[in-house]
Simulated scan of single mutants.
Amino acid sequence: MKVAIAGAGAVGRAIARELVVSGHTVTLFEKNASNLLPESLPQAQWVHADACELHDLENAQLQTYDVVIAATGDDKANLVLSLLATTEFAVNRVVARVNDPRNEWLFTEDWGVDVAVSTPRLMAALVEEAVSVGDLVRLMTFRQGQANLVELTLPDDTPLAGKAVRRLQLPRDVALVTIIRGRRVIVPQPDDALEGGDELVFIAPEEAERHLAQVIRMPGGSEPLTSG
């Protein structure tokens, strides 16, 4: 996969390093010459350019990239790049860093953003995930499809213990993507039995979250389990 990263600061370099290790082709764009440190990651291509300038992006042939990551420390710059990448260069996937959580409402598909990553919000969600049992916690939002990655930890005394995954009557358009059990990450199969303490991770549209929480918290107004 060919990935363009705008912003070669600590965040951009860290993302690039992970992607290079995974075998992807990475180019770092940086307008501040002092941040151009090709010796720190020689496997990546380094370009001295302003990612908000249409001319620089045209010279870099941004349309040839599969993914653009707007990782600068300036929310305005990240939004401009996201919009240009989508509207001018038809890049398939745009991921944008949100520096100030108060600006998160702007990082939508209207600005060309497919996935917005807010570090403060993500850290807060991870704290909630670590201490919340029985409550639905939103971990991440996928803007393009208006779907969320959500997690719920089953209480030890959950009435779902011993029930098969196939007996969960999930709301429409909701998918159980993994079960985390201790150190195990389980790809759920229909006959897998649930246990107290399981962390269930779902993809769900926002409008289905309340119904999903009711189903998983059974009983208490949730859908009944089907027989079998």
Rank of each mutant, 00 (worst) to 15 (best):
A49T: 06
D100P: 02
F89I: 13
G220M: 10
T87G: 04
E109S: 14
A130W: 03
H211K: 10
A60T: 08
L106M: 15
T158I: 04
Q189W: 02
L83C: 10
R217Y: 08
T178V: 15
G228K: 10
D74K: 05
R181E: 10
T25N: 10
T64Y: 07
R166T: 06
T178P: 12
V215H: 05
T86A: 14
N32C: 09
D198G: 02
P205K: 02
T178E: 13
L136F: 01
A70P: 09
D50Y: 10
Q214W: 06
P219D: 11
D114T: 07
A130T: 00
A147W: 01
A10C: 04
D74C: 03
E128P: 01
E58M: 15
E39K: 07
P190Y: 05
W46S: 07
G182K: 12
D135N: 12
L57W: 01
W46Y: 12
L62E: 04
L79C: 07
Q146S: 12
P101M: 08
E128D: 15
L19R: 08
D191T: 07
A33I: 06
N32S: 12
F142D: 06
A213W: 02
G73S: 04
V187S: 13
D173Y: 05
V11L: 13
G12F: 03
I179V: 14
A175Y: 09
L152G: 01
T86P: 06
S22P: 04
D110N: 12
L57P: 05
E207M: 00
G112N: 09
E128Q: 14
T141E: 14
P205W: 00
L83Q: 14
E104C: 05
L19E: 10
R184D: 15
E195S: 08
A10L: 05
G228C: 04
R97Y: 06
R166D: 10
T158S: 12
M123C: 09
T108F: 12
L170P: 00
L139C: 14
S227Q: 07
I5Q: 02
I216P: 03
T87I: 05
N99Q: 10
K2N: 12
N59A: 15
A90F: 14
T158P: 00
S82A: 15
L194M: 02
S34H: 11
T153F: 00
P205V: 00
L84S: 12
E223P: 01
M218V: 12
A14G: 14
R167G: 08
A6E: 04
A96K: 06
L170Q: 03
L28A: 00
Q146R: 13
L212Q: 01
R93L: 13
A49E: 07
S118T: 09
L170C: 01
L149C: 07
S222E: 13
V127R: 05
L149F: 11
R17M: 13
A6F: 15
